[in-house]
Amino acid sequence: MKNKFAERARIVKSSETREILKVTERPEVISFAGGLPAPELFPVENLKNACNAVLDEEGAASLQYGTTEGYIPLREAISHRMKGIGINSTIKNVLITSGSQQAIDLTGRLFINEGYTIICESPTYLAAINAFKSYDAKFVEVVMDDGMVMEELEKKLNNHPDTKFIYTIPDFQNPTGRTLKLERRKRMIELANQYDVLIVEDNPYGAVRFAGEELPPVKHFDTENRVIYISTFSKIFTPGLRLGWICADETFIEKYVAFKQTADLHTDSLAQRITAKYMEIYDMEEHIKKIKAVYKTKCTEMMRSMKEFFPKNLSYSEPEGGLFIWVELPEGIDSTHIFTECLKNNVACVPGTPFFPNGTQKNTLRLNYSNMSNEKIIEGIKRMGEVLHRELEKELTLL
C-alpha cells in the first residue's frame, strides 16, 4: 500500500525528550531528564476525599458529558487565581484544556498557516516547537540572558513583518530556568502593540517561585487584549489529571472552543470536578507552599553539588523557581555525546540541541531537580561530573 499520510505527518516526529525518558526508565538510572514533579508531593489522601465527595454528591453528573468551556466552578476558581496574579478575568475568559499541551496545540491550529513566522526565545520549550512545526511554522529565535533580549526582539519584529505571534515562557523558562525581567515584560507589550502581533504567554511554572521577587505576568500589562495566557495544574497539583487552561479575550476563547470541539468535545469531567472540589475543601496555596519549600531544597542541593563536582569552566543558570537548570559546556563539546556517556554511568540528562527550533547549538544540557531525592541528586551529579571531567580533558588533548 502506498503512503496515505497527510503532508503534516512527514513533519511531525516523536519528541526527543520523550524518547530519552524511555531509556531512563531502568531503576538503576538516576534521571535528571524529565520535567516531572516530585511524586511524594501529590496529595493522594486529600484527592481521595475530594473524589469521594464528588462521587457522593454528584456522581452521575461527574460521569456525564460536559460543556466544552469547562466546569463552571473550576473556571471560577481559575479566574480567581488569575485575579490574584494581576490578570482581570471572568469565566468567559477561561477555557479548560486537556493539559497545557492541548492549549499550545490549539493555538497552532487557530493561528498558524503554512509558512507563518513565530518569534520565540532561543532555546524554548521542545513540545511547543513540535506542536507549532506540525502546522509548518517558521521559527525566528531571539537570544536570552535574563529572559528574551528586547533589543533583539525589536530587530526580529522589524525584519519579519509576517510574524503571527511571540511565544514566551517568562517565568523559570523551560529549558533554561531563566526569568524575564520586569521592564522587559512591559517592553514586550509595547513592541507587540507597535508591530501588531499577538503574545502567547506560556506560564506553567510561575506559581513555583521559591526565591526572589514575585513578578506580574506579561498579560498583566496587556492594554489591547493581545496576550493569550496558558497555564496548567500539572506543576502545582498533579500532572496525571491533565488539566490546563487558556485565559484570553472572549473573541479568542470563542474560536478556541470551536476548535476544541473538533478535538475532544471537552476535558475530563470527573478530573475537573475533583480538582474544583479539592480547591473548595483544601487550601491550594498551602499545598503550593510545600512544593516550593521542597523544590528550593532540591535546587540548592543540585547547585551545591554542581559547584563541587562539575568542571569549573562550565556556566549554568541559577533559577529562582521552576524545575530546571541549564548548563552551557565549552564550545566544541557535543551534549548528545555527553548524554550517551552519562547513561553508561547510569545517570541521565537532556541534550540541549532539540530546544533550539533551528538546531543552532549543541553544547548545552538541561537538568531537572524536582523529581529525584536529595541523595540521588548528589550521587547523580557526582556521576555526571566524572563524565564531564573526562570528556573535557579529552577535548583539551585534541586541541
Rank of each mutant, 00 (worst) to 15 (best):
N203T: 13
Y65I: 12
A131W: 02
G352C: 03
L323A: 10
R178H: 04
I72M: 10
G115C: 04
T124H: 01
N358Y: 03
D334H: 06
L191D: 00
H287V: 01
S122F: 04
R184T: 14
S79T: 02
I112P: 07
G147Q: 01
G115E: 04
Q64N: 12
E154K: 04
S134W: 09
Y256M: 06
E375T: 07
M148C: 07
T117L: 06
A128I: 08
K260Y: 08
K277Q: 13
G212N: 04
P170L: 03
F42M: 10
K344Y: 00
T251D: 11
H287P: 00
C299S: 05
F210C: 06
A211G: 07
D171C: 13
I281L: 11
F356L: 00
E152R: 11
I169E: 12
E40H: 10
P239C: 04
I246V: 06
E286W: 14
P319Q: 02
F5S: 13
E341A: 05
K133R: 15
E393S: 13
C247P: 12
R390E: 10
M82D: 08
E375P: 03
A131P: 01
D105V: 15
Y116R: 11
I236G: 10
N193S: 12
A60T: 15
K155E: 10
L74F: 04
Q101R: 13
C120T: 05
G99D: 05
F165T: 01
K2Y: 07
P357A: 09
M302L: 08
Y316N: 05
I30F: 09
D202N: 11
T168P: 06
I112Q: 09
L157R: 03
R81F: 11
S98L: 14
I378V: 07
C349G: 15
S134Y: 12
P170A: 02
E25G: 06
T397M: 14
T179F: 07
K292I: 11
P73R: 14
K255H: 11
Y125K: 15
N203C: 13
S15N: 09
Q261D: 14
T179V: 12
T168E: 09
I338P: 08
R8V: 08
H337N: 14
D56C: 15
C342T: 03
H220P: 07
E391L: 04
G206C: 13
I253S: 00
L63D: 01
A6H: 14
F237W: 03
E141P: 02
E121H: 00
E224S: 14
E25Q: 10
N49H: 09
Y369P: 05
P351D: 03
G84A: 09
E213N: 09
L153K: 01
N193G: 11
G66K: 15
K13P: 12
D145V: 12
F32M: 01
T340K: 10
P73Y: 10
I333D: 14
E151C: 02
Y125T: 15
I85N: 02
P319S: 02
A9S: 14
Y167N: 06
F324P: 02
Y116P: 11
I253C: 00
I112E: 04
V327M: 01
M82Y: 07
S100Y: 06
L343W: 03
I236V: 13
G212T: 04
L241Q: 10
C342F: 00
T275S: 08
